[in-house]
Simulated scan of single mutants.
Amino acid sequence: MTKPVILVTGADLAQAAIEILGNYEIIYAGKAPQESDVLALCRQHNPLGIILRYGGITAEMMDVAPNLRVISKHGSGTDSIDKSAATERGIAVRAAIGANAAAVAEHALALMTACAKSIVHLNERTHAGHWDKATFKTQELSGRTIGLVGLGAIGQRFAKICDAMNMKVLGFDPYAKNIPSYVTSVDLESIQEKSDVISLHCPLTPENSQMLNKDFFAKCKRGVIIINTARGGLIDESALLEAIASGTVSMAGLDSFAVEPMKTPHIFHGNQNIILTPHIGGVTNDAYINMGVGAAKNIVACLSEIH
């Protein structure tokens, strides 16, 4: 008797996660699966569950897999899943909440400090034989105000780091619970007006798409640093470029983009005031294991509830 199938939209899964899924046959879609590849595998194998690593899950994929009962994200963001379609079809959607919190918070810290300390620029200058000590000054973060948009597992982890750096921490999240004492809960307008650094840690929804737009930047403190380790769709990329050109935004550290992989050429390419990384904030050895285990446990738990 064949085992029910779990489809993974990636080329691998942590061994600990594989062991959790021992009662299922695991089918992998490959390193960079296209929508057509995943659709074909859904049609061929009719999986009981899907672990989403790369790409997205559409209503069409759900329709060609009538046995599908759960879609489990290998991470925390579920915006690449058609959740309305899943709800209509009685398919559970789960995320490995907090599994990559440490990794992403550390990456936000790396981007913030790289921006404030001009690490990339000075690295290039020093490698080229220049010695800019007498002519260049960087920014000190101690005593500055950071505004966090989103206070989930990642946002709160980053808040703790910033508090330890003697930064004043403001947070905007109407859904957050148990906000720590060192975070001052404020409205979004206060984040704009008071923050020297703004860091995004919220999910992408239809309501907050391109939240950081021309009007948003117009209300920010001049010279603000923008950090995004959440979702690229939260930022109007053209508006950000204009804000950097005008000096409203001094630097941006970005790990996610409206379209991924980034289009080449991209309007951000070559801009020395923008530090770019390829949505790699949550990609560490530890997070890889944690996310795989979290995703696998969610699959097993959902299927146990159903049966």
Rank of each mutant, 00 (worst) to 15 (best):
E25S: 12
T138H: 05
N178H: 15
M262S: 00
K73A: 06
G30C: 09
I146F: 03
I275W: 00
I146W: 06
P206R: 10
Y182M: 03
N46Q: 13
L109C: 07
Q210W: 02
R89A: 05
E25I: 01
I191N: 09
E35C: 12
I275Y: 02
W131S: 08
L200N: 12
E19M: 13
L39R: 10
E106P: 02
A128D: 09
I244H: 00
I274V: 14
I71H: 08
T277M: 00
V104I: 06
M291K: 15
S209H: 15
H201N: 14
R89Q: 12
A96H: 12
V183R: 08
S250D: 02
A218T: 01
Q139C: 07
K194A: 05
A164R: 10
G281C: 01
V224L: 11
G75P: 06
H127W: 07
G294L: 05
Y28R: 08
A86H: 10
V104P: 09
T2I: 12
K219L: 07
K3N: 11
N67M: 11
Y288N: 08
F136E: 14
F136V: 13
G150K: 12
N123S: 13
E60C: 04
H266Q: 03
L240Y: 03
F217L: 07
A239V: 03
V64L: 06
N298C: 05
L151A: 06
G56I: 03
F217D: 00
P174C: 11
K194F: 04
H279T: 03
W131V: 06
G270H: 00
N298F: 07
K168S: 11
Q192W: 05
L13T: 01
C42T: 10
S199H: 08
G55R: 13
M62I: 02
K3R: 13
S246H: 01
H269E: 14
G232D: 08
G55Q: 08
P174T: 11
V8G: 03
I50Q: 05
A96G: 09
D37Q: 14
Y24Q: 01
I50K: 09
A128Q: 12
